[in-house]
Amino acid sequence: MIVRLAGVLLIVLALMFSGCVISRGRVGNPIDDNKLRQIQKGVTHRTQVVELLGAPDRINQAPDRDIFQYYYYDAKSPALILLALNLLTLNVKSDNLYLFLDKQGIVQDIIYGKRTDQVDFSLRLWGP
């Protein structure tokens, strides 16, 4: 009886997930919150920033200050490859960290926002 039930369950699962494709992609390294907490405004120097987070992905320069930018992208992609129709979505979200440095290389301000914890595998083809 149990073997028969397991067989039926296996067939149902196989039918449910046949044609499903799930993939994931990432760009950059996730920004480590623990390391970010070690960076203090008015104290931390750019060399310490680089030791903690690595080289910035981008440096934006102005005459009196620099901005170090770190970014991380996370993408989740579900797809349904059916007999008669193929549906595919790719949901991408980004984390960005900006460190404002004065000319002495001291961190003066931090702008950080995390969205990648909200990226999901929803197969939503419509909507904005």
Binding site: N86, L88, V92, R115
Partner: peptide
């Protein structure tokens, strides 16, 4: 059925 068999719909969403 045969026409739909070659039908693919894709969506890429970046941020909300």
């Amino acid at each position: 059925f045969f026409v739909l068999e070659g039908c693919t719909v894709r969506r890429v969403a970046f941020n909300d």
